[in-house]
């Protein structure tokens, strides 16, 4: 669904490339988490998949980005909108301000695509139900909590039925309740099927539970790539400015002190950690 070949990109005012020789293929329906230290190129990768790099930011790009069969660099942004959805950190800035109710806000993208009104109503209500906001369609989007606003932003994008959904730190400005709401919505979306999701996120405990795959960026390059249980427990993680979950940290320390066997993969979630520590070292 996403096919990136040899992608190198440099922002206009910069000398060093933000992305440096990225090769990445994400199959349809996968939830792929992207992690990395600040400045590693995570946001730039999001923008490159959605076409804002290079169309919005200019700069120099070499290599190929193909999303849903379209050459992103050769396709105008207006044609990519709807095919590729983008959600970012600040919920407030994603609300257009041009519509007065949640339902109308969610419909904004469909209006621009010229979707007939009858289809629009059904799709908007389905999207609101999917993000768990079914009862709030007539409220002002500005009267909602941060977590609810972020779900409005999510609904506003998924209502356009994008084949690829890109999220850049969607929970960084939310409290734990808002974070849980957004992750549960994403999990529901993945189960509803079909949508390919690229998720940039700092919170390893949530990635460990929900992602199918984790890609680590460092200085504009892909340095680790694999299932969460493998990548989040990798010993080189801290060298890239990242920390594993406390479950992995505790397990590593316990192995070092001979309290757990060293021949098993370290746990990355609570569910994996409980059996890891209860299964005794075999005599």
């Amino acid at each position: 669904m996403i096919d990136i070949q040899g992608l190198t990109y440099t922002y206009p005012a910069s000398e060093t490339p933000a992305l440096n020789g990225i090769d990445l293929t994400v199959p349809e329906g996968q939830l792929c988490a992207v992690i990395g230290a600040n400045g590693a190129g995570k946001s730039t990768l999001c923008y490159a998949i959605a076409g804002f790099v290079p169309h919005f930011y200019n700069g120099t790009l070499t290599g190929r980005v193909t999303v849903a069969g379209r050459d992103v660099v050769a396709t105008p942004l207006a044609e990519l909108a709807g095919e590729i959805g983008l959600v970012f950190a600040n919920p407030f800035n994603q609300i257009t301000g041009a519509r007065f109710t949640v339902r109308e806000e969610v419909a904004f993208g469909l209006e621009n695509l010229g979707v007939p009104r009858d289809d629009m109503l059904a799709r908007v209500d389905a999207a609101l139900a999917l993000v768990g906001l079914a009862g709030l369609g007539d409220r002002s989007p500005y009267a909602l909590s941060g977590g609810q606003q972020q779900r409005v932003a999510l609904a506003s994008v998924i209502v356009m039925r994008p084949r690829v959904l890109v999220l850049d730190e969607p929970t960084s400005q939310l409290d734990p309740v808002g974070t849980r709401e957004v992750f549960e919505t994403l999990a529901g979306l993945a189960q509803a099927g079909g949508t390919t999701v690229v998720l940039v996120e700092h919170k390893p405990e949530w990635i460990a539970v929900h992602a199918d795959r984790v890609v680590v960026l460092s200085a504009g390059r892909v340095v680790l790539d694999g299932p969460p249980a493998e990548v989040l427990a990798a010993p080189e993680l801290s060298g890239y400015g990242l920390a594993p979950t406390r479950y992995t940290q505790a397990a590593r320390l316990a192995v070092g002190r001979g309290l757990a066997p060293g021949d098993r993969p370290l746990p990355v979630t609570l569910e994996q950690a409980a059996p890891f520590f209860t299964d005794r070292v075999s005599p």
Binding site: A50, F52, F56, L77, A78, E79, A81, G82, G85, L86, F88, N90, N93, Q94, T96, G97, R103, E104, A107, F108, G109, L110, E111, N112, L113, G114, V115, P116, R117, M120, L121, V124, A153, S156, V157, M160
Partner: peptide, 26 residues
């Protein structure tokens, strides 16, 4: 900073797309 983000969010919602538009509000 806000204006730049808003421009991206609008663009992602096909704001600049040409062609016929529809409206939820009748």
């Amino acid at each position: 900073v806000d204006i730049e983000e808003r421009a991206i969010a609008l663009e992602a919602r096909a704001f600049s797309r040409s062609g016929p538009k529809t409206s939820l509000l009748v």
